[in-house]
Design a protein around this nucleic acid. Structure first.
Lengths: 190, 190
DNA sequence: GACACAAACGGACAGCATGTCCACATATAG
DNA sequence: CTATATGTGGACATGCTGTCCGTTTGTGTC
């Protein structure tokens, strides 16, 4: 009985191509804006064929997700094990405000990626959204399920970039979100 | 000097075709879901050529907007001249809650249309969004510009339909929005 | 180092939706 | 009845997507 290898090692050329693809995609997203970049653009820029590209990344958004992954993971780490108020220990209201602020930073820093990845409905399908969901859920009193997606809605990339285009600064948006986070302060009905 | 006619009368056949198009589109949206309906589907179902269709409606969303128009106008009317708390007279917090409730009804009744029309970025471009924006803006204390789009974000069709698919009822969503509307109750900082 | 096999590659290809264009038809005004 | 603007329909060109399969390249074995 031999050992199973559930994740067979990635071949050297495959790894090389993955790197080339991610690098090329990052540059193109930055330069032309994610929605305007076609799969073919990426394949050509990376110097690989369409088939190779599709083998790993079935669509644009999966590439953007891969590119965003490390940044989102860093934030997730801080939420779980970081210092308060982002991490555990502070009152829910402050933790939510801190989460909002961190998300604004993330949106601001990677808007081009995020606009390619988590746009429209597909936003809800990403693993990251699931994580944010669980996190915010944990800050709310039981039974306020419907509030979760409502509180996350303003963080949709479209909303954020729309606000920025209207001339709002990240600071103003953060402040408005801070006010919003007050809704969870007093669970009792008015 | 003759009289100008800025909007030359629509020809009879044109009016007939417009009606056929809207009727066919409404049925198709209902049957297959707006995103799955192609321009060609609509043209064929309406019994007109592609060119005819494109002449009036350059894309799917403009058709959905036309279909939604009357419903949205009815709500807009109530916001301006209707009874409180939807119309003027009630305190801002209650008016916002009433607006939320009315929007939930509208989303619930016309989700198929709304999902075709006001999805993603294009949502912000519609006249209706501008109207909601001005309305909510008028309920807020001066200087809370950034709050407007944040308060409107949960009404994005994607968010609503996602919540519904997760099993939340319109009532639960309305209730959560009612809680959200409390943010504007006390403008002072905590 | 040579071999064999699996994994990866790449580009041709078919499908599909979009949006344009223009020769032709039809309503309306005079 | 005629002239003309307006509207019509469908062929066409374009661009993107995703798949398929013959060929190439790594990797583990002898």
């Amino acid at each position: 009985m031999s050992t199973y290898r559930l994740a067979p090692v990635e071949r050297a050329d495959a790894a090389r191509n993955r790197a080339k693809i991610l690098k090329a995609a990052a540059e193109l997203f930055e330069a032309k804006g994610a929605p305007n970049v076609t799969m073919e653009d990426i394949a050509k820029a990376a110097g690989v064929g369409r088939g190779t590209l599709y083998r790993r990344y079935p669509d644009r958004s999966s590439i953007a997700v891969a590119l965003l992954d490390e940044h989102e993971r860093a934030l997730q780490e801080k939420l779980i094990r970081g210092e308060p108020p982002l991490g555990p220990g502070a009152p829910p209201e402050e933790r939510l405000a801190a989460f909002y602020a961190a998300m604004v930073e993330l949106l601001e820093a990677h808007s081009h990626l995020v606009l390619g990845a988590e746009t429209g409905r597909s936003r809800f399908e990403t693993g990251a959204y699931g994580f944010w969901r669980v996190h915010v859920r944990s800050l709310l009193p039981p039974g306020s399920d419907a509030l979760v997606d409502i509180l996350l809605a303003p963080l949709a990339p479209e909303v954020y970039s729309y606000q920025r285009e209207r001339g709002l600064t990240p600071g103003q948006i953060t402040e408005a979100l801070r006010i919003t986070s007050r809704v969870i302060a007093e669970p009792q009905r008015s």
